[in-house]
Amino acid sequence: MSKWHFVTDGFVKNNPTFVLVLGMCPTLATTTSAMNGLEMGLATMFVLILSNIVISLIAPMVPDKVRIPVYITVIATFVTVLQLLMQAFTPSVYETLGLFIPLIVVNCIVLGRAEGFANKHSVGESALDGLGVGLGFTASLTVIGIVREILGSGSLFGWKFIAGDGILAFVMAPGAFLVLGFLMVLFNKYLAKK
């Protein structure tokens, strides 16, 4: 499979969180637990794949000067559809992630992939790229969520294995920055070794 690298690139080489450092707001805000991180990642992936597909389809027909407003409209449409679907079928998840679902519109990853990849590639490649980057984003968010949940609440995906309260700071705002900072250090070390 020669196109497989479009998917794997999103994981390591183009990892949206640790290498490109894009979409930091949901990364920091929604990763209070592993499950929240996973759900946020999947929600973003949904928008990313669909907007990549549609934008690669319509790119040849869009005049250059109005391409950004067109892309933003397309992305906002999918985000609204996602909002409605989540409200209807997963209301509790929608409540937990709250503001950060509509804010997928301004997630630089989505517009970044539209502008930097989807408008120059075929539909299939764009879909694979959306899948790869989306999975990379989901994986990073889940990892940050896992670390914060273990340190902050002594549990993993809701399964409690350490009695007591855990280090609360890791569930609160400062922990988000600290965990992301230290994970980035580990990622840098890993890349340097390779």
């Binding site: 400062p174 922990g175 988000a176 920055f177 600290l178 992301l180 900072g181 230290f182 980035m184 250090v185 840098n188």
Partner: peptide, 8 residues
């Protein structure tokens, strides 16, 4: 990384 830790 060091910037993020500082913000933390």
């Amino acid at each position: 990384p060091i910037a993020l830790i500082t913000v933390g």
